[in-house]
Design a protein around this nucleic acid. Structure first.
Length: 641
RNA sequence: GCCGAUGUAGCUCAGUGGUAGAGCAAGUGAUUUGUAAUCACUAGGUCAGAGGUUCGAAUCCUCUCAUCGGCUCCA
């Protein structure tokens, strides 16, 4: 019998008979993993455990604890769910059923959507399938046979997928009476899924396109133990506690009104303080980075938007134009054309470049009703916008500086966890290919220089230029695009922008269009969730609350509060005749960073007793001492003490 | 926009065809408190809005608005 050498990730090497299955290798050499492993990974490729060892390889066993293992586990569960659905509702047609970041889904074509009662029935049937411990059987078929098989079942979506596959043979997986097109790998049998839950139903267009039929999607999650499922569900519940929509209400930060309109944000006093603090910081930083601040109107003649091209390519997001004195005006969906006008207001020389215009400009976009989401997607959007006009020679340096600036800003708000995407030329584009390549390379160079990991979003750029996008996840793990750094090859052409070069001739400037926080509304949303509402001192709407223990100490408490106010701190005095515990509790719930508690002792010694949010009593401090500590904490933008 | 769910007091929620409820918050009074809820009383609602069915609608039906979970797009 031919022997084959297998290497393992711990460096060891073992010889096995050719043709032995990976399950058998488990039995023989890794009995501890035997009940846990659900797939094998040979030279980086995932395969079923019942596949045979045929060549020398690096072998690794996958358990449901690893991200790869979870995916396999969830994918198998989605097959079980689809099997259950077909058993209960034989008329449905199958769409696709992949594992996703957390769990799995399966799309079904059915005239009536699934109800919550249907889900219960499906879960029940799934339980039976799990109990029966059916094996997952892999079958390789020539494409033509697979097509015939699905034609017989009238599975039109499967037929569509198979027809588009390039391979000659396809893999099918079968358990019980259910058979599905699938690359695999899968669990050995259905019995391994000890615990699962169907979470929600939703409509989803076939292949994500609104032109196609809407299918019924069922989402679910599964784990190898009950305990893990429970932990997952608890995690979700806990994450909901930091949802900015819940905290926004509890902390009175902002609101929406049915009578005002969906997606239109009202910043309440406490939210407004935070916004103003962000804006002041942002303006100061931008001025230091060589930007010049501008303000532009909220509407402009429709003609301008025709010139910029927005009426062609952005019409679906624009509100209807407004008519006044035989002239059409348009509420602005972007700030760009206005900055172009300012650039054009005089002849620019190469000596003026880079020319950087910055504006916290509120734009209005008609986002479709179904996509609105708290502060994350609204219709009144305050972009932290800027346009950098520069020469080709300055491009690289500017992008590198820009990325540096971005990371610095985000870090100031405590963000270091984000996903970066580099989006390249789409099929439909304007401008010269060579400019696109240069711009894309410049973005790549900048990313490399900062040693940032990024994902390619091939052909994902805007039609007017490539871009770097940066996504931050919310409490429930949903990604939201914040930073965007985009090249714009459209506007310089449309507005015929030029600068006079050293040679005395006109040249076309490059434009980098960027929003670093993205939009104040969305950024505030992710900020709330990032800090779970407990903002660092520099951002807290109320920084200190002063509480006298009894009304006898009122005057001293007021004196302390006045002094803090004079030092520029945001202070509240809580001298209600409630018990101190009651007032502390309230301040804790409001997530106020510091409580200064004063009684007879403190008054006598001219001190304050300091309590920190979530941490408790820090002891007594001299007023000067604690004020300078807090001032430093504000300057450092830390969470302090 | 599409699919589904939801909308009752400031907030969280109970109430499924027969006179609108609770807790917290609010107001008043008492209490003078030492590090996460003192007590009592009072007030508060066109049951999202409009139309319909019914002797009678928070409850059943239709439409509109809004919110939530998705699809798609994006700051």
């Amino acid at each position: 019998m031919e022997k084959i050498k297998v290497k393992f990730s711990n460096g060891s090497e073992i010889l096995y008979d050719k043709g032995i299955t990976f399950s058998e290798i488990l039995d023989r050499s890794f009995s501890d993993l035997k009940d846990k492993a659900i797939a094998a990974k040979i030279n980086g490729e995932l395969v079923d455990l019942d596949e045979k060892l045929l060549y020398e390889c690096l072998l690794e066993f996958i358990t449901p604890d690893s991200p790869e293992g979870e995916k396999i586990f969830w994918h198998s569960t989605s097959h079980i769910m689809a099997g259950a659905v077909k058993d209960l509702f034989p008329e449905v047609k199958l769409g696709i059923g992949p594992a996703i970041e957390e769990g799995f889904y399966y799309d079904f074509d059915r005239d009536t959507p699934f109800s919550l009662e249907d889900l219960e029935k499906i879960e029940k049937r799934m339980n039976e399938i799990v109990k029966n411990d059916f094996p997952f059987q892999r079958r390789k078929l020539p494409k033509s046979e697979a097509l015939m098989l699905f034609k017989k079942e009238n599975e039109t979506y499967k037929i569509e997928i198979i027809s588009e596959l390039e391979e000659d043979t396809v893999t099918l997986y079968e358990h019980d009476r259910f058979i599905d097109l699938c690359r695999g790998p899968h669990l050995l049998s259905t019995g391994m899924i000890k615990s699962f839950k169907l979470i929600k139903v939703a409509g989803a267009y076939w292949r994500g396109s609104e032109k196609n039929r809407m299918l019924q999607r069922i989402y679910g999650i599964s784990y190898p133990t009950e305990q893990k499922l429970k932990l997952y569900l608890e995690k979700i519940e806990k994450a909901k506690e930091r949802d900015h929509r819940k905290l926004g209400k509890e902390l009175e930060l902002y609101s929406f009104y049915e009578e005002a309109g969906a997606g239109l944000v009202f910043w309440h006093p406490k939210g407004a303080v935070i916004r103003k603090t962000i804006e002041d910081f942002w303006i100061k930083e931008h001025q230091m980075a060589g930007y010049e601040l501008v303000y532009t109107p909220h509407i402009a003649k429709l003609e301008l938007w025709k010139k910029s091209g927005h009426t062609d390519f952005y019409a679906e997001y624009m509100y209807q134009s407004i008519r006044a004195e035989d002239e059409e005006y348009q509420l602005k969906p972007m700030n760009c054309p206005f900055h172009m006008l300012i650039y054009q207001s005089k002849i620019r020389s190469y000596r003026d470049l880079p020319f950087k215009l910055a504006e916290l400009g509120t734009v209005y976009r008609y986002e479709r009703s179904g996509v609105l989401h708290g502060l994350m997607r609204v219709r009144s959007i305050t972009q932290d916008d800027a346009h950098i006009f520069c020469s080709p020679e300055q491009l690289e340096d500017e992008v590198i500086k820009l990325l540096d600036f971005t990371l610095h800003l985000l870090k100031s708000f405590g963000f270091s966890d984000y996903q970066i995407y580099l989006a390249t030329r789409p099929e439909k584009f304007i401008g010269e290919t060579k400019d696109w390549d240069k711009a894309t390379d410049t973005l790549k160079i900048a990313l490399k220089k900062h040693q940032l990991e990024y994902n390619m979003d091939e052909a994902g750029g805007a039609f007017y230029g490539p871009k770097i996008d940066l996504h931050i996840k919310d409490a429930l793990g949903r990604p939201w695009q914040c930073t965007t750094i985009q090249f714009d090859f459209n506007l310089p052409e449309r507005f015929d922008l030029t600068y006079v070069g050293e040679d005395g001739k006109p040249h076309r400037p490059f434009i980098i269009h960027r929003a670093l926080l993205g939009a104040l509304e969305r950024f505030f949303g992710v900020l709330i969730e990032h800090y779970a509402g407990a903002f660092p001192l520099w951002l807290s709407p109320v920084q200190v609350v002063v509480m006298p223990i009894t009304s006898e100490i009122k005057n001293y408490a007021r004196k302390v509060a006045d002094l803090l106010l004079k030092k520029g701190l945001r202070v509240k005095l809580d001298d209600r005749s409630e018990k101190i515990n009651y007032r502390i509790r309230e301040a804790e719930i409001q997530k106020i960073p510091y409580m200064f508690i004063v009684g007879k002792r403190e008054e006598k010694e001219n001190k304050v007793s300091v309590r920190k949010h979530r941490k408790g009593d820090l002891g007594t401090f001299e007023l000067d001492e604690i004020v300078s500590q807090l001032t430093k904490e504000i300057e450092d933008k830390t969470t302090g003490l």
